[in-house]
Structures are given as structure tokens and as C-alpha cells.
């Protein structure tokens, strides 16, 4: 958990620094995400007057714990490819949905109109991007002939990355769009839209609870690209994996900075239309052995 927090802060620093450089600015210092979290710890926590407080308090904790669990499963099965359990790839996929579900529950518990509007967008977005993401995830499973996460990694270590094949590359591109929505990065950040929804699903959170939300968001920017690297692009030692992760993060930040926010109907059309079709094509290609 400490590891994922520190890695998350570093990923958040990279995100903000690259964004600043694109804007031709100097950007924040390396310790800025740490200062932000530290500052939120001294602030007052405001609880909703007539909402379920236990849900309001537990939602960020559930979100952060699930992301910490994902990274734990991923990293242990990377270091020891036999350590997983049957179907742990599917478990990781479900755990990835939990931060979104937790933010929906927390938003409804906060009883704010902005938060519930954000939550309704988050639900629609979740329905839209989970379909192509799961289809894209089927490609490495078909190629490795296993649902064990460790097997998927070891197959790539011995036979080269799946992204080198046509189906693997297509699935990786599909999955990059999906994690863009999962991490709440700009073309698909409509659930947290600062300018129109005042923070969206987290509009009512303050103080330490908001700090946990931010940490869970930062941890997700570590876990989601790392998951893609291990699933599709897993060949190489830990340094090469780290470099590949940074490359994927930079791609995500570039997409974030060069696109305006889409509307929810555009996002759903995009994910359930072209992206899903591309994912189906990738699965069929993998089936035929390409």
C-alpha cells in the first residue's frame, strides 16, 4: 500500500509535469502531490447531513484498497509467475471496476445534485467501456491458453510480447482507450468534470476522505497502464517494464492534453461502436492465430 501510494504520487507528478511542459509552463515540483495529500489531512471533514455516513466514509477506502490489491496481485505474479490462482486475471478485471462503483456509491451517499449527475455519467461510462475492455482482455487469454495472470506473463517472456502480433496490437489500442476512461483522463473525464459539475462524483468530499480519493485515483494511474503492459507488452526485465509503463502513461497524458471533453452520448457511441467492433475483430484474429 505504501508502495502504490508513492508510485501513484510519482505518476501524478509525471502527469502534471508533462501537462505543464505541453502548455509551455514550468510545472509543479516533484513533491507537489505529497504536499497536496498532506494538506488535505489537516483539513476539516464535512459529512452529509442526511445521507448514509458509513457509505460516504467507506467508499474511498474501498476504492483505494481494491487498487492496492490489484497492484499486489500483479506484482507478485510478475515476480513469481506460479503464485497466482485460477482465474486471477478475471479477478483483476472485476477489481478494476470497484473504484468506479465505489465513486458512484460515494456520490449517491453525499446527496449532492452535482455528485449524483456525475454518478449517473460514471454508470453509463462504466457500461460502455467495460465491454471492449473485457473483449480486449480475451486476446492475451486466448493466446496464452490460460486465465492465470502468471501464465500470460511467462508466455510473453518466452515467446515475445503479444503486442507484436496483429490481434495483440489492436487489442492494446482498444485497451488504451478504455483505461483512458477508467483513469478519468480528459476525453472521458465527464464524471469528474470540474468546469460543469464542480468536481462531479467527489463534489462533496473534503479533507482526509478527499485525500483517500486522490490517492486511489493516483494509484489507478499506476495500476491500469501497468496492467496493460503486463497483459499485452510483457516481455523484458523490470527496467524495461517500467520504461514501457512510462511510455503508456505519456501516451495517455498526450491524449488527455490534445482532446476536449466529449459528451456522454458521444462517449457511449464511441465505446459501443468502433471500439467494440475493433475489440471483436481482435478476438477473432487471436482465435485464428494472428
Amino acid at each position: 500500500m505504501a508502495f502504490i501510494s508513492i508510485a501513484g504520487m510519482f505518476a501524478s507528478y509525471l502527469d502534471r509535469k508533462i501537462t505543464a511542459r505541453i502548455h509551455w509552463r514550468v510545472g509543479p515540483s516533484l513533491k507537489q502531490p505529497y504536499y497536496d495529500i498532506k494538506k488535505l489531512l489537516i483539513k476539516e471533514t464535512i459529512l452529509p447531513a442526511n445521507g448514509p455516513i458509513w457509505l460516504f466514509v467507506s467508499a474511498p477506502l474501498i476504492s483505494f484498497l481494491s487498487v492496492a490489491l490489484i497492484s499486489d496481485i500483479m506484482i507478485t505474479s510478475w515476480f513469481n509467475t506460479g503464485s497466482g490462482f485460477i482465474g486471477d486475471t478475471v479477478v483483476i478485471f472485476y477489481l478494476f471496476a470497484i473504484p468506479a462503483v465505489a465513486s458512484i456509491l460515494g456520490a449517491f451517499a453525499s446527496q449532492s445534485p452535482y455528485a449524483s449527475l456525475g454518478a449517473s455519467r460514471e454508470i453509463k461510462l462504466l457500461i460502455a467501456y467495460e465491454v471492449p475492455l473485457f473483449l480486449a482482455m480475451l486476446v492475451p487469454i486466448i493466446k496464452a491458453q490460460s486465465v492465470l495472470f502468471g501464465k500470460i506473463i511467462s508466455a510473453q517472456v518466452y515467446n515475445g510480447s503479444f503486442a507484436a502480433s496483429a490481434s495483440g496490437l489492436l487489442a492494446l489500442i482498444v485497451a488504451i482507450f478504455c483505461i483512458q476512461a477508467k483513469m478519468g483522463f480528459t476525453p472521458f473525464d465527464l464524471a469528474e468534470a470540474e468546469t460543469e459539475l464542480a468536481g462531479g462524483t467527489q463534489a462533496e468530499y473534503s479533507g482526509p476522505l478527499l485525500a483517500v480519493w486522490k490517492l486511489s485515483k493516483m494509484a489507478l494511474t499506476v495500476a491500469a497502464p501497468l496492467f496493460l503492459v503486463m497483459l499485452f507488452w510483457g516481455a523484458g526485465g523490470w527496467l524495461i517494464i517500467l520504461l514501457k509503463y512510462i511510455v503508456l502513461l505519456i501516451v495517455a497524458v498526450l491524449i488527455k492534453n490534445t482532446n476536449p471533453r466529449v459528451k456522454i452520448n458521444q462517449a457511449m457511441k464511441f465505446f459501443l461502436g468502433p471500439v467494440s467492433i475493433a475489440a471483436v475483430v481482435a478476438v477473432l484474429l487471436a482465435w485464428k492465430g494472428y
Partner: peptide, 21 residues
């Protein structure tokens, strides 16, 4: 904006008063 860039010192605009200092 880039000329003054207050984000260097950690100053950011936020959308909700609950997130503000």
C-alpha cells in the same frame, strides 16, 4: 497562464468549495 504559472507553487483552481483552501 504560462507567463506566471502559479502551479509551480502548488496553486490550482478547483471546481468545488469542499476541495478549496
Amino acid at each position: 497562464t504560462p507567463r506566471y504559472d502559479l502551479e509551480r507553487f502548488g496553486i490550482q483552481l478547483v471546481g468545488s468549495i469542499r476541495h478549496a483552501d
